[in-house]
Computed example of a mutant assay.
Amino acid sequence: MTEMLDQKEMKVIVFQLIDKEYAIGVDVVQSIEKLLTITRVPKTPPYVKGVLNLRGVVTPIVDLRERFGLEAKEMDDSTRIIIVTLPEFEVGLIVDAANDVIDIPVGSIEPQPGVVGTVESEFISGVAKIDKRLLVMLNLEKVLEPVKRGTSDEF
């Protein structure tokens, strides 16, 4: 799913939630936007903040802090919405900051650690150790699973 460079490196977008850095493959990232006006939609889970009209496309917006059960934070100038495109739909992810785009050696990615009791552990596909940085690799299919199920009270 993620773009490989010579099968040895993977290009990812690094973003931040609280004091942790997370990464997702650039191949699914459509754009990174500053905070825009979000229209609330009734009967959606609390982590679905609503929708926004982005260049003529109505896109659901998910607050990753709330999705992971992390403490809420007032949105500010560094808050970003990462628009990701998956085979079935497009969705925006609210993050504290979008830090950079880097190439990760595939060999530096370790399987998901066996962390018990963390809410976000089910959303992790692996962990990459780059120099002194620890990047949590997200499994977007798991993160967005309830969002794409499409029941009457979910997006």
Rank of each mutant, 00 (worst) to 15 (best):
V28G: 04
D76Y: 01
V136A: 09
D153Q: 09
K34S: 15
E154C: 08
D27V: 05
G92W: 02
I83A: 01
I38F: 04
V29I: 14
F15N: 03
D6N: 14
E154Q: 10
G114W: 07
A97L: 08
L138H: 01
G117M: 06
S121Y: 05
I130M: 10
I18F: 07
R133K: 14
N99K: 14
K20S: 13
E3V: 12
T39A: 14
Q16M: 08
F123Y: 14
V28C: 14
Q16Y: 04
V127E: 04
D19P: 04
K148I: 15
F155N: 01
V26W: 00
V48R: 04
I32D: 02
L35V: 10
I61S: 04
K8M: 13
L64W: 06
K132G: 06
V57K: 13
L64D: 00
K11Y: 03
A128K: 04
I124V: 15
R65G: 05
D131H: 10
T85L: 09
T59K: 01
I82Y: 01
T59C: 10
E21T: 13
I82H: 04
K34C: 11
D96Q: 03
R67A: 09
D6V: 12
V41I: 14
I102F: 03
V26G: 03
D103W: 06
T2M: 12
R149S: 14
V57D: 05
L86H: 05
E66F: 08
K43H: 13
K129A: 08
D27R: 11
G56Q: 03
V29T: 08
A97Y: 08
G69C: 01
P146F: 06
V58R: 04
Q112V: 09
R133M: 09
R55Y: 06
G150H: 07
P87S: 13
R149K: 15
G150L: 11
R80Q: 08
D103N: 10
R65E: 03
T37R: 13
V136I: 15
K148T: 13
S108L: 11
I94Q: 00
T2V: 12
K148S: 15
Q112W: 02
S78F: 07
P113F: 06
I24A: 01
L36M: 15
L144D: 00
M4N: 10
E90C: 13
V106N: 03
D76T: 07
V116M: 10
E88K: 15
V136W: 08
V95A: 03
F123C: 12
S31K: 15
K34M: 12
N139L: 09
D27H: 12
V29E: 02
V147Q: 07
K142G: 04
V91Y: 05
I104K: 00
Y22Q: 07
P87I: 02
I83R: 00
K73F: 00
S121F: 05
T59M: 03
I24E: 01
S121M: 09
E141V: 09
F68Y: 13
D103E: 08
I38T: 00
K11P: 08
V106F: 13
L135K: 06
M1V: 08
R80D: 00
P60D: 11
V127W: 06
T118Q: 11
K49W: 01
R55D: 03
Y22V: 02
R40A: 13
R40M: 07
V106H: 02
Q112E: 09
P146T: 08
V127H: 06
V91T: 15
R67H: 11
D63N: 15
Q30M: 14
